[in-house]
């Protein structure tokens, strides 16, 4: 249903062009959950915003195709995009505390996208239902239903609450209800559990799983937590410095990681064991994307399998086994020749 090809999103800055998303390819089938994993600043969120064509200026999508249900979103008019946003593709944001508008009631915010997309619009004769009482009643009922579905207790009472009267977990549930309001086909979940504590995290992920099962909603889950992705997703794509470095079915990637970065991420997940072991962190930091127009692998300075050729050639994505892709010099046959 979604096919992203060679997506490039750039930000012009004083220090040169920052390639926030640099040639990302992935695809998603109906009812599938794909995890987009990577450190902060690796371009995961920007990939999501690029799909919705909501990259904040001066940033812009520079290249690539986003085919959603057979339509290239890159060619869609602003009006068409507005019809798709919220209705076909909905997004759940990272920080529920700041994402809900503080001056409107929760219930009204859930109702809003139904109203925008005319979910219950009546073809009434003009003036018969001037104040849209019927439509409002239907929207209200659906909002209550949604609040029940996402697990907000006493929805009739909480409908009239303001965001500050909700706890963090409840706010995130409300955000999910907003995203589900028009039964979207695709849900972009941008670190939906990062701002929450662990027990609430599990509940929210459980809720998303339920939504995926019941409505067959496809989900792209953006996370920096490989453990969360491992448990939740069908496929995983690991991003580093704006590029996907490894992509494949979840069990293959977790059990047999190929890219040194994926290996590093897996090794840095703390395990609860009797013996106290030091967590293996990947040395160094995500590179500054502004200075990153050199050829070669962006991970070379943090990689323990680095060879001199890593910096010299442009490394292509290689399909090592059906459905398994890696972008690493050790898995490419054409690496040497690609430099020309």
């Amino acid at each position: 249903m979604l096919n992203v090809k060679n997506l490039k999103t750039i930000f012009p800055t004083d220090r040169g062009i920052v390639k926030a998303v640099d040639g990302v390819d992935f695809s998603l089938k109906h009812g599938e959950i794909v995890g987009l994993v990577g450190e902060s600043g690796s371009g995961k969120s920007m990939t999501m915003l690029s799909i919705l064509r909501l990259v904040p200026p001066p940033g812009r999508v520079d290249n690539g195709e986003i085919i959603f249900e057979g339509k290239n979103l890159g060619d869609a008019s602003p009006r068409e995009m507005m019809r798709i946003r919220g209705k076909e593709i909905a997004m759940i944001f990272q920080d529920p505390m700041t994402t809900l508008n503080p001056v409107f009631k929760i219930g009204e915010q859930i109702r809003e996208s139904m109203r925008i997309h005319g979910l219950f619009k009546e073809n009434e004769v003009f003036f018969r239902d001037l104040f849209k009482k019927k439509q409002k009643a239907k929207e209200y009922n659906r909002a209550i239903e949604l609040m029940k579905e996402v697990g907000i207790p006493a929805p009739h009472l909480r409908y009239n609450d303001y965001p500050h009267q909700f706890s963090g977990g409840m706010q995130q549930r409300a955000l999910i209800a907003i995203a589900l309001a028009c039964e979207p086909k695709l849900l972009l979940a941008d670190e939906p559990t990062t701002a929450l504590d662990v027990t609430i995290q599990a509940q929210i992920l459980e809720l998303l799983k339920k939504v995926n099962k019941i409505h067959r909603t496809s989900i792209i889950l953006v996370t920096h937590d490989l453990a969360v992705a491992a448990e939740f997703c069908h496929e995983i794509a690991v991003m580093y410095a704006g590029k996907i470095v490894e992509r494949g079915p979840v069990d293959k990637v977790i059990e047999n990681p190929k890219h040194p970065y994926t290996k590093g991420l897996l090794a840095s997940i703390p395990k609860i064991t009797k013996v106290k072991k030091k967590i293996k962190a990947i040395p160094g930091n995500v590179p500054d994307l502004a200075g990153l127009d050199k050829t070669g692998c962006a991970f070379f300075d943090r990689c323990d399998e680095v060879v001199p050729r890593c910096k010299e050639v442009e490394i292509p994505m290689e399909e090592v086994r059906p459905g398994e892709f890696v972008r690493c010099i050790h898995y490419t046959s054409k690496g040497v020749r690609a430099s020309g």
Binding site: L52, R85, F93, D95, L100, N101
Partner: peptide
Amino acid sequence: KQDYVMLARAKGLSKWMVVIKHCIKN
């Protein structure tokens, strides 16, 4: 610059509707 502006856009509101409905009151 607030996040709720992005949410309103992601709901499918136009740029100016977001300004009128979500921003002015704030």
